[in-house]
Design a protein around this nucleic acid. Structure first.
Lengths: 235, 235
DNA sequence: ACAAAAGTGTTGAGGTTACACCCATGA
DNA sequence: TCATGGGTGTAACCTCAACACTTTTGT
């Protein structure tokens, strides 16, 4: 019976994270140059190998930490890719994760150290292996999630304005929304707490700052209130 | 550089399928007894090992075929589980798939041969490893998909009645829907083609049969028309 | 004739869209 | 004072939810 186990082929298991960031205008992707692709102008997702005593989530977190120094990041498992030819060196199976981070949280020095760079989603460089396919898949997942769930607060600073959220959603869906309808919808979720302060320096009037009501956000109750008009045409 | 690959730990990669079936009344799960669990009263998902030259999807299809004789089954990748202690024999990573089949398509003789059995979702036996968790996860995914997409026609016969679809949806969500609203919604999708025939033998009046308009189904355009009232309370 | 399931329409409420003007401020 | 972005209200429309009676036919 144990033979059944012994005879089977084993694979390397990689964890690759698609790291989305938002700089206030555009959606970005954090890419690195490592090992194999060092020479060529090929970038890859943040990735590494599973170690013997880690769960998949733990490994994804560890790798993210090793490559960026960031901790406590929103990570969500996406699909697993395992085409036998996807990695020409050796058979690997890659479990992918989607991470959302606020660009300003990410220290650029560390980024230098690791040869990491933010790329606009609209101007991605050539990517390693099947990473382009993985990225497309992650964008799809981000969109369908954002359409039905309040998501993406991880991409914003602690305090943010409604125009900022709207810009983020517009970046995610690559389209424009009516600001009156958008703010009504996002406020109706009851997840935002209005602060006294205004954002200064960006616009002349200044926009009110909000924070997320984390306890409500974690309850995660809202479902069919979606945040985007004409969902079906966008997804 | 290649050392980077050689030093890494390798894992067994399993493909496990959660096979949902519908018998006209209840949602069922197809489980087997194999290898390790032969003796005990422990059942497991349909599963097997990845072979060197297969993609994950190919392997999941092959395994399903080997264990059931069924071909051309709807399969969709779900999450990957890789807790280091999930399989006590050896470290394995399990990529899970959701399959939907029509119970009557499944030959019971083969089922005898493989020690496979349909179990009502409400009366599942003890399951191997973390398979219970995997099943719970699959049910969640089936529900959130069914709430927003017309799904589950794979679980019905070629020709089906509207009351049958409704019963299926009621089984998926374990609740009751208003038949007027339900039939209006499902017909509004434009995916159903009404036939001349009626179903006979089940009810006295007989219900009209429908088939799926496959070309429209594959275009898969509908999105925010969801098929279930009060989605948020159900998911 | 009756039991059992199929089929069908309306109304009120609530949500979504489309749309345009005034406000606050820094330069 | 003017340019820039922030903030707000309303009306028409549409969709959803709730609700009950008639039809068909096998027994």
């Amino acid at each position: 019976m144990l033979d059944l186990y012994l005879k089977q082929t084993k694979c390397l298991v990689a964890l690759d994270s698609i790291i989305f960031g938002f700089d206030g205008e555009e959606l970005k992707l954090l890419l690195v140059k490592r090992g194999i692709e060092q020479e060529k102008d090929v970038w890859s997702l943040m990735g590494g190998w599973l170690k013997p005593d880690e769960s998949l989530n733990e490994a994804a977190e560890r790798i993210l930490f090793e490559l960026t120094g960031l901790n406590n990041i929103y990570l969500e498992q996406l699909s697993t890719f395992g085409d036998p030819k996807r990695d020409p060196v050796e058979r690997t199976v890659s479990v992918t994760y989607k991470a959302l981070i606020n660009v300003s949280d990410y220290d650029l020095n560390i980024s230098e150290k690791y040869q990491a760079r933010w790329f606009s989603l609209k101007k991605l460089p050539e990517l390693l292996f099947d990473h382009e396919q993985i990225v497309r898949h992650a964008i799809d997942r981000l969109r369908s999630k954002a359409a039905f769930h309040p998501v993406g607060f991880e991409l914003l600073p602690e305090k943010f304005t409604i125009p900022q959220i709207q810009t983020l959603y517009e970046a995610i869906f690559d389209s424009k929304f009516d600001k009156r309808n958008f703010s009504r919808k996002i406020l109706a979720s009851g997840l935002l707490v209005k602060l006294e302060e205004k954002q200064r320096g960006f616009s002349k009037k200044g926009a009110f700052l909000y924070t997320l009501d984390k306890s409500k956000y974690e309850k995660n109750t809202s479902y069919n209130l979606y945040f985007v008009p004409n969902v079906e045409s966008l997804i």
